[in-house]
């Protein structure tokens, strides 16, 4: 038996909106630790890892580890029917083939339940090694989204370079080139407006903008995004999910032959 009650139901709506275009089907894993998901996009270039820790739920009952295969587009369709202020409860029986999403309005005057069919999904959990990053950039998520959107109107790939000058996002296309440099800026009124660059060594990597743009659909989840880079390794683009967890997008770089 599984019963997870999330008072801030809008978080789950935002999570689904941020992954539904990247991943078609995925297994949600439920354990004592929390509600999690690891899945790759269909071309195996990007991977998404979500964790919503059990402590973040108002009520968290998971009698035994459960893996529930869901079509993320269908799950997003159902969660779209929840109001932004609604409390969302996820319910499933052990061995059952459906999951129920219950939506309660804050005043308890409207209660809805949506039952969705589960699916069998063959998926392998990949081991993600702990990495020491050469550079970690923390910046306003809206700024990062704007940069990815702007650059994708010029080119298909972005070169992200971190030096002691700052972080540079560059692209090149048929019509010309573009470079956007963001410098460290910690003298801001609000901490969410800060740009913080921790650099051990300069690093420069090339990525497909199509995926970066897809990751920025998580922007409504968090005011800040963290971009972690190491030479010849996947970039990690992380958005915190309130106080309860994170959504991390891993993107394989483009490398010289």
């Amino acid at each position: 038996m599984l019963e997870l009650r999330l008072v801030q139901g809008s978080l789950l709506k935002k999570v689904l909106e941020s992954v539904k275009d990247l991943v078609n089907d995925a297994n949600f894993d439920c354990s004592a630790t929390g509600f999690s998901l690891q899945a790759m996009d269909s071309s195996h270039v990007a991977l998404v890892a979500l964790l919503l820790r059990s402590e973040g739920f108002e009520h968290y009952r998971c009698d035994r580890n459960l893996s529930m295969g869901m079509n993320l587009n269908n799950m997003a369709k159902m969660l779209k029917c929840a109001g932004n202020d609604d409390i969302v409860t996820i319910k499933a029986d052990d061995g059952g083939d459906t999951v129920t999403f219950m939506f309660e309005s804050p005043t308890q005057d409207k209660i809805a339940d949506f039952e969705m069919k589960l699916m069998d999904i063959d998926s392998e959990h990949l081991g993600i090694p702990e990495a020491e990053f050469q550079a970690i950039v923390r910046m306003p998520s809206a700024e990062f989204a704007r940069i990815c959107k702007d650059l994708s109107s010029i080119g298909d790939t972005v070169v992200i370079s971190v030096t002691k000058e700052g972080v540079k996002f560059s692209t090149r296309g048929d019509i010309g080139t573009a470079n956007i440099v963001c410098r460290q800026n910690t003298t801001v009124d609000k901490p969410e407006d800060a740009t913080v660059i921790e650099m051990q060594e300069p690093v420069s990597l090339t990525f497909a903008l199509r995926y970066m743009n897809s990751f920025t659909k998580a922007t409504p989840l968090s005011n800040q995004v963290t971009i972690s880079l190491s030479s010849e390794l996947p970039v990690v683009v992380e958005y915190k999910v309130a106080e309860m967890g994170y959504i991390r997008f891993y993107l394989a770089p483009k490398l010289e032959e």
Binding site: M40, H44, V45, A46, L47, E124, H125, L126, G127, I128, P129, T157, T206, A208, L233, P234, Y250, L251, A252, P253, K254, L255, E256, E257
Partner: peptide
């Protein structure tokens, strides 16, 4: 010439 790597070449299968 740059080539798109697969994420599977970085992370281990169980």
């Amino acid at each position: 010439m740059q080539r798109q790597k697969s994420i599977l070449s970085f992370f281990q299968k169980p």
